[in-house]
Design a protein around this nucleic acid. Structure first.
Lengths: 204, 204
DNA sequence: AGAGCCGCATGACAGATGTCATGAGCGGCG
DNA sequence: CGCCGCTCATGACATCTGTCATGCGGCTCT
């Protein structure tokens, strides 16, 4: 189509965001036309800018890049979505794909892949690390129910059962039951390990 | 001295590292002459390159940027040290300063501060976020003994007392005692919270 | 030399946590 | 409709965790 690819860049750490913008700025055919630091600013800003590609970090305040991707995919389906993340968690990849992402990159990957991914998604291709894709398929889907995930998330900061029960409007016994089933599903010994494993897998 | 400032860049995530290099490359007076992805490659690489400034991320495999800073400060005391980190933990700032760092930047800060910091440290100035400095002074020093820190670090992944005891060649009772004193010093309710707080403060 | 801190350990105890059996209500699916 | 899974709950039990008192040996500082 037009001469340059218009990109929206979403990443909460200013220094990283501007550095990525500088990197993309080196490419003649790519132009970063908007930058945001929060997930919940993605959609409003995208609406104002007629962009071709949105580059979304996952870990952001407001809402995650995956949630932002889902919103964009629904509201502006022609915009291509590149999800970028620090952590190559298979569960993240799965969620990103379900949210309509066209590419999934980890920040460990060489910088050259970034511009390349932008061009490829615009050409209709999908860009996914094959190793990660294999891992995502191998580990299967998230076995936790909504409640189990909720309780596990709430337990992540070291809260006691009584605090969890109060926060979630449940009885202590129920909290323990949910944690117990989560612990069994994740094949671990206690809640702390359960939180860690669920985090690593991107299930939390 | 010479025309351009020679910089060594240490950061484990390729994409971020190369993006930062691109950012610094936009400055006429700064040149990134070497890049490494691991803490333990910093010193050997610095020896080969006659650099003016080392830009060190804290979170790296091999060894942390703070340990690398200490090594550099000892071996090549004329090299100026800029420590860069995702997390503005007061304890990190303190450790970095003790390791001989000249500047401490968080990745949240505007990108312009990076080049600025490089120039300032070379001019003999120190660059520290005043808010962080205040926080570091306000919270005081790390109250944990070596053993307490060690046990807490080992407990971070959700290991049980028996596993900790085996891993650290201690009795279970001793492990519990250390955790207990750590929990009291940090004024929290259990090990999980203790780990979280110690992490946040940069004491872990 | 004595005081004091640290590392390490033990034993006893209360309270938190994890497991299990059991059951009620609700919704979906064949 | 019956079966199943999810949610929520209770009670009982075993184990784990956190606290406390106490003790010993080593080290440092005065």
């Amino acid at each position: 189509m037009s001469s340059t690819i218009k990109v929206l860049l979403a990443e909460d750490q200013s220094m990283v965001r501007e550095a990525l913008a500088a990197l993309l700025g080196l490419e003649d055919d790519i132009e970063v036309v908007a930058q945001v630091a929060r997930g919940d600013e993605v959609l409003p800003t995208a609406r104002q800018h007629d962009i071709d590609v949105a580059l979304l970090d996952i870990e952001m305040p407001g809402c995650t890049g995956i949630e932002a991707a889902a919103q964009l995919h629904k509201a502006l389906p022609t915009v291509k979505l590149v999800v970028l993340t620090t952590f190559g968690r298979p569960g993240y990849l799965r969620s990103a794909m379900e949210a309509g992402a066209d590419a999934f990159l980890v920040k460990d990957a060489p910088a050259a892949q970034l511009a390349e991914a932008v061009r490829k998604v615009l050409a209709g291709e999908r860009v996914i690390d094959p190793t990660l894709a294999a891992a995502a398929l191998a580990e299967g889907a998230n076995p936790l129910t909504d409640r189990e995930r909720e309780v596990l998330r709430a337990a992540a900061d070291g809260s006691t059962n009584a605090e969890l029960a109060a926060a979630l409007h449940l009885s202590q016994g129920t909290v323990r039951n949910y944690l117990s089933t989560a612990i069994q599903k994740l094949a671990v010994r206690n809640r702390a390990e359960a939180v860690r494993i669920a985090r690593e897998k991107g299930w939390l």
